[in-house]
Amino acid sequence: MFNTKTVLATLAVLAGLSGVSATQAAGEVVHIEKQSWSFAGIFGTYDQNQLQRGFQVFNEVCASCHGARLIAFRNLAEEGGPSFSEAQIKALAAEYEIADATADGGVRPGVAADRWPSPFETEQDARDANGGSLPPDFSVLAKARGVHDAFPFWVFNYFTGYSEGGPDYIHGLLTSYEDEAPEGFELPEGKYYNHVFPGNAIGMAPPLSDGQITYEVAEGQTAVPETVDQYSTDVAAFMMWMAEPHLSGRKQTGFVVLLFLVVFAGLMYGTKRKIWAGIEH
């Protein structure tokens, strides 16, 4: 009795919700094209080559204005990430000067354990250098952005485990600059038009252009196109890794745990039935 009612009620709830949501549809939703990411889904893992390319884009283009203060150089050598070699990381870290009160002159060359130094010392410095806009820190930015789905599509996200809204947004943002603001749009001085950015007037000039970065192709790898779209995808993937460095391991453990629970639940059900056998209830 309870069960048939449950079904009926669920249907009623869904009907009610779609009624309400129809009235809400007036609010504009920016359409952002979802990408297919290697790290999506139950078995998702990062593509090491993509992360290395993404790091190159970050390092050569973004890092002059954007920090990544929660990332340590050593993270770049960790398994499941870009997995650069220890030697590469050591050399990279040594290129940076790290403030250290105990060192001669207050600075010393970086080591693998150091955090990524921020390009500006204070928030005010950052604003002054960027026409009043603050370039956000990249450490967790990929999780601080998202894509809004209309009802009922967001409901499915709970069942697919969709967690790639951040990289989708970043890719969308980087590929959505327009040379001219549309007719009637008042673009403030020093701002650029972007149809994904909230409010459309963004302080960051289009950072990427086709052919801007030269990807080295290692032996046995296929070359990827050197386009804005590809750069954007790669840097978005790299930013997702920065925000969620243990994603691959987490999903692998999760799969084992889920499998365990299904088997355990089956055994528990059998045990429970055996114990209840012969009892009218």
Partner: peptide
């Protein structure tokens, strides 16, 4: 009787729990 039934319920409940915790912790 009910320790087993409750324990079975708990294991079943852990399945969606674990789903969110491992595959979509921020959703």
């Amino acid at each position: 009787y009910y320790t087993m039934k409750d324990a079975f319920g708990m294991v079943l409940f852990m399945i969606p729990f674990v789903w969110f915790a491992f595959f979509a912790p921020d959703i």
